[in-house]
Simulated scan of single mutants.
Amino acid sequence: MIMHLVTATLGTVSGRPREQCADRSQSLFSGLGMDSLALMETVTALEKLTHCAIPDEATGRLKTVGDLEDAVRQYSSAPASRIAQAEEYLRGHVSLHFERANRFRAASSLLRQYGLNDTEILVDLGAGHTELDYFLRVEYGWRGRYAPMDAWIDGTFDLLTWKPARSVNWYAALEVLEHLENPESLIERMKESALAGFVVTTPNSKRVDVLAQDPTHVTPLDEETLQRWGLTTSLHNFYGQYQDGLCGLWRREFEANT
């Protein structure tokens, strides 16, 4: 997400093509034609977007796109900044509960159908408003242990670097993969840790413009990609268009039998 924000902000300020602004080796000055005022405008905009403060001495050392990206990542990784980012992101979502319901019902149905029982633990990665917990308990009668993981809880959770401290039965990662620059890495980490399996949902890039849906979306995904990663997939109506959403399920039992 940081890379996406830096690229977009540089493009707005410098007026240069996205490909040039995404090149980490590109000089901010000779390459993108920026001066000190343009650099300050860029840094200020990124500070507001990521709720961080980049010191003047750090700004003075910025020479390339990569330098800028690293600085934003470093100073926005403090817990207080990450909590503020997560809270603002959640406040910015104005869709109504019933409009989001289909994705939680799809995930809940698969989890219960393929074995999530009342003795098991479910870890919800990027849990947001924790609505999956509500649907599992109220509509699907589940009584197990639900553990939400999200930056708004304590500011330490980062899906890019997260490594599970223990194995659990099930994971859920709903509307998460499209926010990651390398979503397959998260898939592999869940495979390593899940005792039973995991479920994911994501927009279907063959039906919707995923990048236009949300400024933090960076990776469009399709059914074939999820299947290539070993997931069983189904198509759903999540966002108001026919088959515009994907649900994917991975089970360790399935993996062992293939």
Rank of each mutant, 00 (worst) to 15 (best):
H4C: 09
L5I: 09
S14D: 07
R16E: 06
P17C: 07
G31L: 09
G33H: 08
M34D: 09
S36K: 07
A38L: 13
M40F: 10
M40L: 15
V43W: 08
V43Q: 10
E47H: 05
L49K: 14
H51T: 03
C52L: 05
I54R: 03
I54F: 12
P55G: 11
D56Q: 13
D56T: 11
A58C: 14
R61M: 14
K63M: 15
G66E: 01
Y75E: 05
P79Q: 03
A80R: 11
A80V: 15
A84C: 12
E87L: 07
R91V: 11
L96W: 06
H97G: 04
R105N: 13
G115L: 04
V123H: 02
D124Y: 04
G126N: 02
H129A: 11
G141T: 13
G144W: 03
M149L: 15
A151Q: 08
D154S: 10
D154Y: 09
T156D: 05
F157S: 04
L160T: 15
R166C: 06
S167L: 03
L174F: 04
L195W: 13
F198S: 00
P203F: 00
L211F: 01
L211G: 03
P215R: 10
V218C: 15
E223V: 14
L226E: 02
L231K: 09
L231W: 06
L235S: 09
H236I: 08
D244G: 06
G245I: 04
R252S: 12
F254D: 14
N257I: 15
